[in-house]
Design a protein around this nucleic acid. Structure first.
Length: 492
RNA sequence: CGGGGUGUAGCGUAGCCCGGUUAUCGCGCCACGUUUGGGACGUGGAGGCCGCAGGUUCGAAUCCUGCCACCCCGACCA
């Protein structure tokens, strides 16, 4: 087995898969297309959950939980939504097994136990939630209703990939109901903004906020806002979405309320979500050939201490100093792990912690004890320095902030140098092929052009960026007039 | 679901074309000893229905047929 990861130049997909498995984040399960998230990977997910949850609650949202199963009749109530997800649904048709008379020791589905109505395993929860909201909303006094749920969903995809597209995945989905259209749109934008802040400040992943074109829009939505990130191989990844659902679900599920004038009106809705896919974004944004690189805010352990010793006496002496360092760091809110395993040599520990992306490593041996120093190594730049034990806590605190910042700016720099404005289709194809990344170009606004470009180049419109200014131009493909540049890329 | 590829120990593999001793090698694993400032070394050891089911043959990992699984490229998608 090679000690290094596969070179990404050779095969980015393989590199990604190897990294996910070797860094102990996740692996494929025995169930087709499903993923086992291992403890280390799950610890990262928990950190993400905690931060998102905090941001949701700060903006007035509450958590709740709705059923995994959606009766087919409810599922099909909002037609566009149902149609959009129909091709990737897992369906429960029976509720009992029995001994198979033809195969002793085996079980079969009891044909007598067929459900009256099939149950769809939720690919998303709008249907079951709006059916419930119907009973919760009667008056404007019940609004806004701001609810989020942490759940698993199932989408029976043809092709799957660890974290990026698994048959079952974990996510949060927010579902809100509002009195007015303006308020619902405001909520949609607010949540997209929260996702952008989370991605950039917490995960150190720069994102572009924008609106989806009609063909990429969520089934059943009036408008889909999104955050788009650029991966190191030049492909784009949709990292989060926030939908303005208009009154589509309110009408489909008959959710009306009495407004201040005493008249009945349908409520306005939003839904928004991010998933374990964000972990894929994390891996593909920051990692290098030594393994994962974690921003300090997401690392289960921000610092690891590796003792280097020959005798038990040495170890005891090092442990004593290490204990002081640990309590100082913890007092400052920094998470630290003392890797005191006697079964592994220092070199093996170094390699493992690098693979797992621990931001800072302290190595301490007899030499350091004598000098009152430690060796401090930072994961992102792979640099090492000898630093004095005095004010080590401050040094580390500063370095962690610096790493968080450096990771974001490195990724931002990459995105900036891989975002290209083009004005001709020749240039479009050339940039896509030779350089990749985001392509900013004029588009005539038609689905036909979008489809044609996709067919020829495999690039899709990732979004119409919110920050793009009005600019007169002509469509890169059709030559028809256009008022704004949009962002194209090959996507995951 | 179309096109291509691969299934040999926990992982990565040799052998297959041209059938023939006890299935190769590396990593990992176990024991003991020596080691420990960047993935240690030595000695010994355990681990295989060679994807599954048939067939051909004195004899099959190897040849034939069928099936299954996985990977890659499409279509689909957060």
């Amino acid at each position: 087995m090679s000690k290094k990861l596969t070179s990404r130049a050779e095969d980015y997909s393989k590199w990604y898969n190897e990294l996910v498995v070797k860094a102990d984040l996740a692996e494929n399960s025995a169930v087709r297309g499903c993923m086992v998230i291992k403890p280390y990977g799950y610890a990262i997910w928990e950190k993400m959950q905690a931060e998102l949850d905090k941001m949701f609650k700060e903006t007035g949202h509450q958590n709740a939980y709705f059923p995994l199963f959606v009766p087919k009749s409810l599922f099909e109530a909002e037609e566009k939504n149902a149609e959009g997800f129909a091709k990737e649904c897992a369906i429960v048709t029976h509720y009992r097994l029995q001994n198979d008379p033809d195969n002793p020791g085996k079980l079969r589905v009891d044909p007598e136990a067929k459900l009256e109505e099939e149950l769809v395993v939720r690919p998303t929860s709008e249907a079951i939630i709006w059916n419930t909201y119907k009973g919760w909303i009667q008056s404007y006094r019940d609004l806004p209703l701001l609810i989020n749920q942490w759940a698993n969903v199932v989408r029976w995809e043809m092709r799957t990939r660890l974290f990026l597209r698994t048959a079952e995945f974990l996510w949060q989905e927010g579902h809100t109901a509002h009195e007015t259209k303006a308020e619902a749109i405001e909520e949609t934008k607010l949540m997209n903004d929260i996702y952008a802040k989370f991605a950039e400040n917490f995960m150190a992943i720069p994102v572009i906020q924008g609106v989806k074109s009609e063909s990429e829009r969520f089934a059943g939505a009036e408008d889909t806002y999104c955050i788009e990130a650029l991966m190191q191989d030049g492909k784009a990844l949709q990292a989060g979405t926030s939908h303005f659902l208009g009154q589509n679900f309110a009408k489909a599920f008959d959710v009306k309320f009495a407004n201040k004038e005493g008249k009945q009106d349908y409520v306005w809705a939003t839904s928004w979500g991010v998933s374990t896919r964000l972990m894929g974004a994390l891996i593909m944004t920051h990692s290098d050939d030594h393994g994962l690189v974690l921003p300090p805010s997401l690392a289960p352990n921000q610092v690891v201490i590796v003792p280097i010793y020959k005798s038990d006496e040495d170890f005891d002496a090092i442990s004593e100093v290490a204990d002081t360092i640990i309590s100082d760091l913890r007092a400052k809110g920094i998470t630290v792990k003392f890797d005191k395993r006697k079964t592994h040599r220092p070199g093996a520990k170094f390699a493992q912690h690098e693979l797992q992306g621990v931001p800072l490593r302290i190595a301490m041996g007899a030499r350091d004890l004598a000098n009152g120093t430690v060796e401090l190594a930072r994961r992102d730049k792979l640099t090492k320095e000898i630093v004095p034990l005095d004010d080590l806590t401050e040094t580390i605190d500063g370095l962690l902030k610096d790493i968080q910042d450096a990771l974001f700016h490195k990724a931002l720099e990459y995105r900036n140098t891989h975002t290209t404005e083009v004005d001709t289709f020749e240039e479009f194809k050339d940039v896509l092929e030779t350089k990749g990344g985001f392509i900013s170009a004029h588009w005539d606004g038609t689905i036909e052009t979008e489809d044609k470009i996709k067919e020829i180049t495999k690039a899709t419109i990732r979004c119409i960026p919110l920050e793009n200014k009005e600019e007169k131009g002509v469509c890169v493909y059709s030559g028809a007039p256009s008022s704004k540049r949009v962002l194209f890329a090959k996507a995951y």
